[in-house]
C-alpha cells in the first residue's frame, strides 16, 4: 500500500482509491434505476390483484405481499440467488440479475400497497362519472384515476425511493461490487475510514437529488386539491 503511493505518486494513489468506488457507484445507480423502472410498472397489476374480486388471486397476491414485506430484503437477495441454484443445480443468472430480481419483487410489493391505498382513496364517483361519459375502464384508469393517485401517493413513493437509495448497499450480500462494498474493501486495505465517509456522502447527495426531484413533482401537481 505504501508502495503504490510512492510508486505512482499521490494522484495515482487517489485514483486507485476512487476508481473502484466510481465503478461501485455506477453499479449502485444501476440497481437503483433498474429497480425503480421495473418495480413501479409491476406494482400496478399487483395492486389490482390485491383488490381483485376473485378470492384465489387476491389470496395469492396477499401471500406474496406478506412474505415480501415480512422478511428482510437481505434474506430475499440470498434466496433469489441461491434458491434456483439449489433447486435446479445450476446458476441460471448472474449475481447482479439475482439482486435485481430480489429488489424488484420487494419494492413492487411496497409500491403496490401504496398504490392500492391511493386507488382506493379515489371516490367511486370519479369512476362512475367517467364510465357514464363513455370512457373504457382502461381509459378511466389511465386518464382519470392514475393521475390523481400519483398526486396522492407522491410523498409515500418519495419515502420508498429514498429507502431504495440506501438499500442498494445490500447488493453486496451476494458479492455484487456496489459502492459500499468498494468503500469497505478500500477502507480495510488502507486502514482508513475515509472511503466509508465518501460512500456516505454519495448516498446523501443522491438522496438530495431524489428530494429535489420529488419536491419539484409535488409542486407541479399542486395546481389542484
Amino acid at each position: 500500500m505504501f508502495g503504490t503511493l510512492t510508486d505512482g505518486g499521490w494522484a495515482a494513489g487517489q485514483w486507485q482509491m476512487l476508481r473502484p468506488m466510481l465503478l461501485g457507484s455506477v453499479v449502485s445507480l444501476e440497481v437503483f434505476a433498474l429497480t425503480l423502472a421495473l418495480s413501479i410498472p409491476l406494482s400496478i397489476p399487483i395492486a389490482f390483484g390485491r383488490m381483485s374480486k376473485w378470492a384465489p388471486l387476491r389470496r395469492l397476491v396477499n401471500g406474496y405481499l406478506l412474505v415480501m414485506r415480512g422478511t428482510p430484503l437481505i434474506l430475499q437477495i440470498l434466496f433469489a440467488y441461491f434458491a434456483p441454484y439449489y433447486i435446479l443445480g445450476v446458476s441460471i443468472y448472474t449475481r447482479f440479475a439475482a439482486v435485481i430480481v430480489a429488489f424488484v419483487l420487494n419494492y413492487a410489493a411496497y409500491f403496490a400497497e401504496i398504490f392500492r391505498g391511493g386507488i382506493e382513496s379515489i371516490p367511486r364517483g370519479q369512476w362512475e362519472a367517467a364510465q357514464v361519459l363513455g370512457f373504457t375502464p382502461a381509459q378511466t384508469f389511465f386518464r382519470i384515476v392514475l393521475p390523481q393517485v400519483v398526486k396522492r401517493t407522491l410523498p409515500a413513493v418519495g419515502n420508498e425511493v429514498i429507502t431504495l437509495v440506501k438499500d442498494t448497499a445490500l447488493a453486496q450480500t451476494i458479492g455484487v461490487a456496489e459502492l459500499f462494498r468498494a468503500a469497505q474493501t478500500i477502507s480495510a486495505a488502507r486502514f482508513s475510514v475515509v472511503p466509508i465517509f465518501v460512500a456516505g456522502a454519495f448516498y446523501f447527495l443522491m438522496n438530495g437529488v431524489v428530494s429535489v426531484v420529488f419536491n419539484h413533482l409535488e409542486r407541479r401537481l399542486s395546481y389542484y386539491s
Binding site: P123, G125, Q126, E128, A129, A130, V132, L133, G134, F135, Q139, R143, I144, P147, Q148, K151, Y224, S225
Partner: peptide
Amino acid sequence: MGLVFQNFNLFPHFSVLRNLTEAQIHVL
C-alpha cells in the same frame, strides 16, 4: 345518455375546459 350527479364528480385534475373536451376527444 348522460348523468348528472348530486356531488358533481368533475375531474379535479383537469381544467373546466378539459373536463368538457376529454370525453369528446377520447370517446367520440
